[in-house]
Each structure stands twice: as structure tokens, then as C-alpha cells.
Design a protein around this nucleic acid. Structure first.
Lengths: 169, 169
DNA sequence: ATAAACCTAAGTGTAACACCTAGGTCAACA
DNA sequence: TGTTGACCTAGGTGTTACACTTAGGTTTAT
């Protein structure tokens, strides 16, 4: 079938199908007459796999690797299992992050509902700044967790209590 | 303080600070002598707000809007409250999605652990394809939920049981 | 004096597509 | 048969929020 047909059948877009084709994940047959691309049942199954994998959080690169394995007569099972296990850790973190965020946001909304709407503080962003500052101390560690792997050592310069830095000049 | 100092103090990168400066979220003082940018306490607080907001899932555009309000003598409270409430819905969905994914992935890993590693099926991607196909029916609705807003009507062409499409030609 | 460490602006790269352009194709209707 | 409208192609640009690179000037420390 043609590109839009396939796209609609698997609930995606023609552009996406073309993209996967372009980067070599799908191998349609190209008509000699008009250049149209035709996808058979096997390609449909391939796309189905891609879409599901993408939804599970696999990157396109991951999928490329998997296909590279399986297209070369390997099963790819171990690879996929490894990637999934890795992804599972990330998803669990996302779960926790989302949970924490929900709590904080509900809390913030709750607090604000008790405050009048138009009482600007010295810093002009009313109490938002204050609320956000309070939240930030709870938020940042969470962020650190997620990005610990790639973060270089923090190496913070010490601050005084005015939040002003010592410009050792 | 200078860009790297500020970045380290708030646990971000100099590039990020330069980016926010470039798009007008931060307004440092530029030295006449050497062109170096200097950020005072107020700018530091601004950046702190930006980082926290970003971590709460606000887009840079959202933050731009908020600053646009607050910089024009409005409090921005209502705007922020609205955006947060809107974001809360998304975060709740992320929470549910992550939960569902965790379940499915654990399930998949569990199943595969009972199967041998190298038993290719007819489709060459061993049982991955089968497992994924089974998962997909559960996954796709979740995706639809997330993307319902922007998805045009599905308008699926009917498929026969071979997964082959009728090419009404 | 010179190296290490910092700074600048401007440009390119990233992920995974979405959207647009210009032009060819196909099915149906008048 | 002409023409509309829906489809297709390749190739290009736009998107988000930065990270990275380049080329060159500056500051700091030894």
C-alpha cells in the first residue's frame, strides 16, 4: 500500500513513514512508473514494531541498532532486553519525578489560592518568586538525580547570605 | 558575577546562561572594556526563577510570557496559575503513562526471561515482534490520549485478518 | 613571558519529526 | 476530454532548548 494508507492504518503520519524510510528503517518498493512507494505486509509489521518501540521510549537509534542485529541473522533479544531494562530505570525515574512534581504543583496552587491575586512584592513577580524559591530546594536534588550521570562535579563557589557572590578579583 | 560563576552557583551551564541572555530573559551589564557580561543579584534571582520553572515543565516561551507580564507592572499570578494548572494535567498524564509503561516493560522482561534467547520466529525478530504486537494494543490508546488534542480524525481503512490492506485500485 | 583558564559572538549540531514548496499523478465527474 | 481535487515525490526549512565548535581577545597565575 501507499504511504498515506500505511500511515492511517497504523495511526501515524505520512511524514513519519517517509522519515523512517529515508533513514533506512523501512524498505518499500519503488514503482518504476511514477516513483510511488509501496509497503507490503512485512514492512507494515516493521513499522508496527517501530511505533511500539518508540512509544516504549526507545530512540530511533536504538531501533536502528536492533534492526541492524536482526537483519543480520541475529535475534536481537539480548540487545532489546538490555535496552528495555535500561529504559525501565529511566521510566521509573520519570514516574517518581512526575509524582513529585504533581505534589509540588498542587501545593503551590493550593497556597496561592489563599493569597490575594495582586500583591506584588519587592521583586515584582509577586509571591511566585518566593514560592518557586521554596520549591527549588526540593526540586534541584531531583534534577541532580536524573542528570547525575552526565553532570561534572558541581564545584560551587561559596555564596554569602545575600545571595551575592564573592568576585575574587 | 561573570557567566561561569553564575552558572556554577545555580548548577547550570554557561551556555544556558548565554542562551537565556541572548533570547532576552536575562539582562546582564556589559563591560565597556572587554565586553564581558556581569550578572547582579537580581539577575541571579531571575535565573533561579527560570530554572525552577523549566524544571516544573514550563516552556521557555511560557517564561517569556510571564516575564513580559511581570516586567510591565502586572503580577503575572493569574497567568502562572493558569499555566501551572494546565501543566498539572500533563504531568498527571505523564505519571499515568510512566506507570503503565513500567508495568508493561516489567511484564515483557518477565516473559522473555522464561524464553530461550535464540529462537527466531518466522519474522526474524524472534519473539520481540510478537511481544511488542501484544503490547501495542494496550499502548496505542495511551498514546492517543496524549495526542488526542492535535490528532486529526483517525479515519482508518478497514483491515482483514491477515493485516493486509484492501488496495482499492 | 607565557601558559592556563576565562570570555565574546557567531555558527553548527542534536532528535524526531512537521510543514512547505514545486511539480508530477490519479480517480472521478461534467 | 478537460478539469478539479486528492494524492504522490524529493528536497528544503522550521521546531525546542540548548551543547558544542571556532576564532579570537582577556585575565590570572606562575
Amino acid at each position: 500500500m501507499k504511504v498515506s494508507n500505511l500511515a492511517k492504518a497504523l495511526n501515524t503520519t505520512a511524514d513519519t513513514v517517509r522519515y523512517y524510510t529515508k533513514i533506512g528503517l523501512l524498505h518499500p518498493q519503488k514503482s518504476q512508473l511514477n516513483g510511488y512507494m509501496f509497503y507490503n505486509a512485512q514492512q507494515q509489521q516493521r513499522l508496527s514494531f517501530i511505533l511500539t518501540a518508540r512509544h516504549l521510549g526507545f530512540s530511533v537509534k536504538d531501533i536502528t541498532n536492533i534492526f541492524h542485529e536482526t537483519d543480520n541473522n541475529h535475534t536481537g533479544c539480548k540487545l532489546v532486553r538490555d535496552i528495555i531494562k535500561q529504559r525501565l530505570v529511566e521510566v521509573e525515574q520519570q514516574f517518581l519525578d512526575a509524582q513529585a512534581l504533581m505534589k509540588l504543583m498542587k501545593q503551590a496552587i493550593g497556597e496561592w489560592d489563599h493569597l490575594p491575586d495582586k500583591t506584588p512584592t519587592s521583586q515584582s513577580i509577586c509571591h511566585l518568586m518566593d514560592s518557586f524559591s521554596a520549591i527549588q530546594s526540593e526540586i534541584n536534588p531531583a534534577k541532580s538525580l536524573t542528570e547525575t550521570l552526565k553532570s561534572t562535579k558541581a564545584n560551587l563557589t561559596e555564596t554569602d547570605n545575600n545571595g551575592e557572590m564573592h568576585e575574587n578579583k
